[in-house]
Design a binder for these strands. Structure first.
Lengths: 336, 336
DNA sequence: CGGACTTTGGCAAACGTTTGCCTAAACTGT
DNA sequence: ACAGTTTAGGCAAACGTTTGCCAAAGTCCG
């Protein structure tokens, strides 16, 4: 209260409170942690008053060092700029906060080396758990799994197999897209995808094609095109270009992500093809903005806003020593 | 409860390396930190080999406790779901990483109480600096400033004034929008905005109106409408509704954010008003998706991708004891 | 040979917590 | 009164680093 440093007041630690209260740091620590039965009622009250008056807050670094557990969770995500990833990050952040944790956010840019680097740094930071969105196979990831670190995979499964998972049934999502177009009597169908797609992307495409085969379309009748690249926007544009190069636009087009759908849309717009009149596009993600500026897009809604609580539930299960499990959330095709 | 580590290798600490190398932890610490002149060449080599072999990495918690500095920076942002905020987060994350820092991301939902809560937690986490995007006035923020904590404000200035700032010249952005519409011979103009807008929003609107007045439009000739709410999408929709309630659509509409422009667009779409033929809309932010799915929108581009490096530069200046300064980045109106 | 200085490295004290163990004193029951 | 138990709280050892200080031993120079 009395002594002030020239710049900013000195941080108040257990020792500060203890000195002012005339007790030992141990006693203050215990009281702060709610172990009130180890001190007399007066002591407890005196200390609590002092804690409030001085604005004491436990230093989390000291606590982490001693307890060997922090309240930090690391979230590794490729490409934060992707609206779907941002939605996941927002949802996870909120869920972690209500569970009393904070989130370190790491953008891996889908690169194994960055993922490794971040995994190492996070380990040395003594984080309590890991959330890996769309993981890529990497050394440190395997090591972390082998070590038994609490990891929840999101969107894409552990490339080595196993582990806790939160996501959707991607095959069914693709199949639902096929059903939708089929029910609209559309038979001239196509699908585009990235050259080196993730397992999630591949599953969606696979589900789409498989379902169409079940419905009676023969193998060659579903046109496919792919394009290399990282950005789904550009992949969508380029793949659509290849698709319609020398051919007419299909009547129905499945894109395994909304971003790819936007890419295809741009090409259509530039070449005077009307969407959805000339070609119905179905995407996946159901970006929030679709309702506002892309009503032409039918999309498979993924409940990203619910991912956070699911992920945190899984993490807590892992902390409780339970076996990792998979959680598939319901998706739903949205027509506007 | 039971932290099972069946085959978990014990974490390797300085003590581990020291024991194996037959030296003291002090020596290992010094070598790890590059102070090679305090040990003989053989010792240095032996220790370095061992460090590599054991995969030793300094525990950052211990280091933080001792050095009283961490390599963690806290970023407080309202509403991560907003594409502009996500863009800033991505950019800052990348810049921090190249500077050797990691980012704790906190979503304040534009609420003072959450901002305070997070500021407290981050302080007890011994973060090295704070990046506050679109701050709101709050007690802990004022206290933090008063204490001299390194804080960089982004987008919106410190509500108490002062402090380091990275952003754009919002008035000029609004004026540029006015100039653009004026040059297209559009005189029937309107602007919409949130009821309790931030200083940034207000500045943009103010710049727009002021410029029009300079150009010769009298005060009452620029129609205005506002709507309450948090989500700019919905604010845009509702405000546009009020604007055209009983009136024709204006020929030109300025929206202080792209999201509001999307809201207005939806209303136009629903009511059969053609954009941009019937009404030209100018937004601010230049969301990346505009080029793909909203080519009808003219928008003032804000170089969010450059914000990261600027923010980190400012932070480092603060760490070096320099006075906080303001950094205005160039914006540019983009017509498609 | 003796002082001065350099090299090499260890000791131990922090940083802020938590917690097992100890010790008095104050009770309790007989 | 006495043994046994509870109560109230302190001591000190961790957790993993960093770093000021000290000490041997070696080197240099006169």
């Amino acid at each position: 209260m009395n002594k002030q440093r020239p710049f900013g007041q000195e941080p108040v630690s257990l020792a500060t409170v203890a000195a002012q209260a005339g007790v030992s740091v141990a006693t203050v620590s215990r009281i702060v942690n709610g172990e009130t039965r180890r001190a007399s009622a007066e002591t407890v009250e005196r200390v609590q008053k002092l804690v409030a008056a001085l604005g004491y807050r436990p230093n989390r670094v000291g606590r982490t060092l001693r307890r060997r557990e922090s309240c930090i969770v690391a979230m590794l995500s490729p490409n934060l700029d992707n609206p779907a990833m941002a939605a996941i990050a927002a949802s996870v952040e909120a869920a972690l906060r209500s569970a009393g944790y904070v989130m370190i956010l790491c953008d891996t840019h889908d690169r194994a080396d960055l993922q490794d680097e971040y995994l190492h740094v996070m380990r040395s930071q003594v984080v309590q758990g890991y959330i890996v969105v769309n993981p890529v196979r990497s050394e440190a990831l395997s090591a972390s799994i082998a070590r038994g670190d609490p990891i929840v995979f999101v969107g894409r499964r552990n490339p080595d197999g196993g582990g806790a998972f939160v996501g959707i049934d991607n095959r069914r999502a693709g199949a639902d897209a096929a059903d939708h177009l089929w029910a609209r009597e559309i038979r001239d169908l196509a699908v585009i995808h990235p050259t080196q797609g993730s397992s999630a992307t591949r599953d969606r495409v696979h589900g789409f094609i498989t379902r169409l085969r079940e419905l009676g379309l023969s193998d060659g009748e579903v046109r496919q095109a792919e394009a290399p690249g990282l950005s789904h926007l550009e992949v969508g544009y380029a793949a659509a270009q290849r698709l319609v190069d020398g051919h007419p636009w299909p009547q129905g087009l499945f894109c395994p992500s909304d971003l790819m759908a936007y890419g295809a849309y741009r090409l259509a717009f530039e070449t005077g093809v009307r969407i959805p009149e000339d070609c119905r596009i179905v995407g996946v993600d159901d970006n929030k903005l679709n309702a506002w500026i892309a009503p032409w897009l039918t999309s498979v809604h993924i409940p990203y806003t619910d991912f956070g609580t699911e992920v945190v539930d899984q993490l807590q299960a892992l902390w409780d020593g339970e076996q990792p499990s998979e959680q598939l959330l319901p998706h739903k095709l949205i027509v506007r």
